[in-house]
Design a protein around this nucleic acid. Structure first.
Length: 837
RNA sequence: GCGAGAGUGGCGGAAUUGGCAGACGCGCCAGACUUAGGAUCUGGUGCCCUGCGGCGUGGGGGUUCGAGUCCCCCCUCUCGCACCA
């Protein structure tokens, strides 16, 4: 009984575990995916975003790497020299949290995770060249991150400046914007405040215009990502105008995109942090109250201040400006809705034509003056207006400009501003410089030394790396252990040899990930970050694949790096990623998988139960890559069943027919064989197009399933099988399957008696003549409704098709006694007969 | 609010240029094989109707011989941005 059952099981399913592990071992021994620069072959660089080693892979990773592996394997079969590397974005805060909470060193936590996740990736059978593996936390890597920092430094692209930053009072540390959730620290939920601190910045704003304009060159990027970057850079053109301050020689500079509304400016608003504030409020009787107000606003923090329902609050400074166009004295207010970080930190308020200004004006009873009339001519009533008129129109109440279309008036006013020397046209970007300082331990040390004599001194290149000391202990406060690690802090000045102090901040981990794709080109170089030859051979990345959550930060920083490195002559190509695919999320029960929701699916469990090929196939089949994917256990079963079906088909036919011929089959011996042959060739065509043109792996797999169904029909019904057609069909089937189910394909390739790896074979070709059949089915419609079908010769003329259609009894029924209006014939597709009453 | 994307059977999804809506898979139903079937193979399966046939791609209108696909209006959902002057 037991024996029989085992035998039955063996007859219907294959031992995926044995098959997969066997081939993984063989591929590894043969170093099948190892690549070298080979000028004789076209190169293809396929890259998936390297993961943070958080512990174990999640389904999003499995999806990301399955997609990438199809591309890599397909391109390899297409004859490309494919670089497909993997590494670890290994610095970051979770490692420190683990250290604090579980008393594990970030280093051992990270390396343990890497070991585990590498093993998972290998078990999935992803075709990486593992010899190129890098980890950004390894000194061999971060040494070159530091070196690049110094190149940026020399190029004047690094600066240290005071800046308002998010500060968590409980954790005693600065937080990145992305670590602030709803105005609170993501770790301890304490409300975040703003602090002015000396911080290191990359001057990415110098590249704002190029980062923006060169988005147009990125034809292979999704519009969504380009739009997000465009918005993030936030270019706006306007005019900076000086408003003289009454009783001071100083003028208040404002930036406006609506200089045409200057006659409607009835007050000014400056940011609480504005440097002129102390002088402006010096003589105010409310000075103490104003200072209290400013303190309140600052405590609020930038996040809370920018929140949707934030009230617009302000106080009058007691000082006045003169509107240079009207000559009027207008009051200067301090307002929480004006941000120091944008423009000049001061605005001219035009309440009639700006909703924010109108809200503020209504709250504090400030005057409203309409200066733009809508095209309808209905002048808004300044006294009752509740919705500002922000559209274009004709200028009114605007002195000599009255009557002009506002767009024209804007230019003329800008001209006048420049002529009178009270300002100039200006381009303003929302993009801010990239703050790279982090008060954290587990990051790349910033290679800077502070000397009392020489000031800020970069560490000389030959002294790199500045090694992160591992012998440190972690405090529950979260304060970096580097700060009170004397062996690290105390050093000598590289310039004068005197005592000096090391920078204890480390770099934002986005710096590490801004150049890893270059290191993959030359990962073991001990004398340089990379050599230009190798980078020039492999770069740019032909296909980059990852989650859309990196649409702005990582993908913009990487573009910035590549531009700078191209400017410095270190690389040739100015763009890092030629084509970008942003995959959708993996959902369960309609929601993103997360531990807190308890709806995660463990990749290890799936691989153990069904194997890697099943896991990969299901993920690729369930949804096209860009779309979200709904996880389904039943769907996984389906994928598993399909692979077993393929296995049975190939093994059964191989057993039944004995040794099979190789190569193309001539026309089939009978109609059934010929039909099978047609399906085979049609499937090759379809799968090729789906992969090549659209990355629609779900429909490619569906086509292979149809082929397998057709094969079963033939297998079950053909009395005498056409060996040549079957052999050719099985061969192509296995080749088509190779990128999707690499282990099973390899196994079956050998079942078919082939020696070399299936993954070294050329992609199958199809015979265009074999794809076409001699007859085609024509749909026959009457007044757009399908009434019948018709088989005609492929070459049938329009007239023949038309006559045949009109002669059909069912057509006659529906046209009898009615006037024939028109007959539309779409060759090879349909006939539509239009009849009147 | 602004920007982007999506809405198709019981479910995941397909329909590449305006030309058979629902490929393929899941689920369900039936048959075959079987001591047995939660294995396998085969067939069926959008909805309504006994049938002829009618209806059907979020809703409403339009263009067209013909619309899931193009145009206009509206609704819902997802994502991104959000006082950017």
């Amino acid at each position: 009984m037991q024996m029989e059952r085992t035998a039955t099981v063996r007859a219907t399913t294959y031992d995926f575990d044995a098959v997969e592990q066997k081939w993984q071992r063989v591929w590894d021994e043969q170093q099948l995916y190892r690549v070298y620069e080979d000028p004789s072959k076209p190169k293809y660089y396929c890259l998936e975003m390297f993961p943070y080693p958080s512990g174990k892979l999640h389904m999003g990773h499995v999806r990301n790497y399955s997609i990438g592996d199809v591309v890599a394997r397909y391109k390899r079969m297409r004859g490309f020299n494919v670089l497909h590397p993997m590494g670890w974005d290994a610095f970051g805060l979770p490692a420190e949290n683990a250290a604090i909470q579980h008393n594990i060193h970030p280093s051992s936590w990270t390396w343990d995770n890497i070991d585990y996740m590498r093993q998972q990736l290998k078990r999935l059978g992803i075709s990486y060249d593992w010899s190129r593996e890098v980890a950004s936390c390894h000194p061999d890597y971060y040494r070159w991150t530091q070196w690049l920092f110094l190149q940026f430094y020399k190029a004047g692209l690094v600066e240290k400046k005071r800046a308002p930053v998010n500060w968590c009072p409980k954790c005693q540390t600065v937080l990145a914007n992305e670590q602030v959730v709803d105005g609170c620290c993501e770790r301890c939920d304490t409300p975040v405040t703003v602090r002015d601190l000396e911080q290191w910045f990359f001057r990415i704003t110098r590249y704002a215009e190029r980062l923006l304009s060169e988005l147009d060159e990125l034809q292979g990027w999704p519009d969504k990502v380009k739009i997000m970057q465009r918005n993030w850079i936030g270019k706006s053109t306007g005019v900076e105008i000086q408003f003289p301050i009454k009783g001071m020689d100083e003028a208040l500079a404002v930036f406006t995109t609506r200089a045409d509304t200057i006659y409607g400016a009835t007050y000014m608003v400056i940011a609480p942090e504005h440097p002129l504030v102390p002088r402006l409020i010096a003589d105010s009787p409310d000075r103490a109250a104003i200072e209290r107000f400013i303190e309140d606003v600052r405590r609020q923090g930038e996040i809370a201040r920018a929140a949707e329902d934030a009230e617009k609050l302000g106080m009058f400074t007691g000082s006045y400006c003169v509107n240079p166009f009207t000559g009027e004295e207008i009051p200067i207010w301090i307002g929480n809705y004006v941000l120091m970080g944008y423009g000049t930190g001061a605005i001219m308020a035009v309440p009639a034509h700006d909703q924010r200004d109108l809200d503020f004006a209504r709250r504090y009873g400030l005057p409203v003056r309409v200066v733009i009339a809508p095209p309808s001519g209905d002048l808004p009533d300044a006294a009752t207006l509740t919705v500002a008129y922000a559209e274009d129109g004709t200028m009114v109440n605007s002195g000599p400009y009255t009557g002009l279309p506002n767009r024209e008036g804007l230019e003329r006013i800008a001209d006048e501003v420049e002529r009178r020397g009270i300002g100039r046209r200006r381009v303003q970007y929302r993009l801010r410089d990239w703050l790279i300082s982090r008060q954290r331990y587990w990051g790349c040390p910033i290679p800077i030394v502070y000397c009392d004599h020489c000031g800020t001194v970069p560490v000389p290149e030959e002294q790199l790396p500045v090694v992160l000391p591992e012998d440190v202990s972690f405090k529950p406060t979260g304060q970096s252990p580097l700060v009170d690690k004397p062996e690290f802090v105390h050093t000598t000045c590289p310039q004068c040899g005197g005592p000096a102090r090391r920078e204890t901040d480390t770099m934002d981990t986005f710096v590490d990930s801004s150049w890893y794709f270059l290191r993959f080109c030359d990962p073991h170089n001990t004398g340089a970050a990379f050599t230009k030859d190798k980078v020039d051979y492999w770069m740019p990345v032909d296909q980059y694949i990852g989650g859309v959550e990196h649409a702005i930060l990582h993908l913009m920083y990487a573009r910035f790096f590549q531009m700078v490195l191209a400017d410095l002559g270190l690389v040739t190509t100015p763009r890092p990623f030629e084509r970008l695919l942003t995959q959708g999320m993996v959902l369960k029960d309609g929601a993103k998988m997360s531990k807190s929701k308890g709806n995660t699916v463990d990749p290890d469990h799936i691989v153990r139960t069904y194997g890697a090929d099943t896991a990969r196939l299901f993920i690729l089949f369930a949804s096209p890559p860009e779309r979200d994917l709904e996880w389904s256990d039943a769907g996984v079963e389906g994928a598993y069943r399909f692979l077993n079906r393929v296995w049975r088909l190939v093994t059964d036919l191989a057993n039944e027919l004995g040794p099979l011929p190789q190569g193309p089959a001539p026309a089939g011996r009978d109609a059934a064989a010929e039909e099978l042959r047609r399906v085979v060739h049609r499937t090759v065509k379809k799968v090729t197009q789906d992969i090549e043109d659209r990355f629609h792996f779900n429909t490619a797999i569906a086509a292979v399933m149809e082929l397998v169904n057709a094969f079963y029909q033939y297998k079950e019904s053909a009395t005498e099988k056409d060996k040549a057609v079957v052999a050719e069909g099985l061969e192509k089937l296995v080749l088509l399957l190779a990128p999707f189910a690499p282990h099973l394909a390899e196994e079956l390739w050998h079942t078919l008696g082939r020696g070399e790896s299936v993954h070294l074979q050329p992609w199958p070709s199809y015979d265009p003549a074999a794809v076409e059949s001699d007859t085609v089915e024509i749909v026959v419609q009457v007044n757009g409704r399908v009434r019948d079908r018709l088989w005609v010769a492929r070459e049938a003329s329009e007239a023949e098709v038309r006559e045949a259609a009109l002669a059909l009894p069912k057509v006659q029924e529906h046209t009898a006694g009615r006037r024939l209006v028109r007959v539309v014939v779409v060759p090879g597709r349909l006939v539509n007969i239009v009849v009147g009453q």
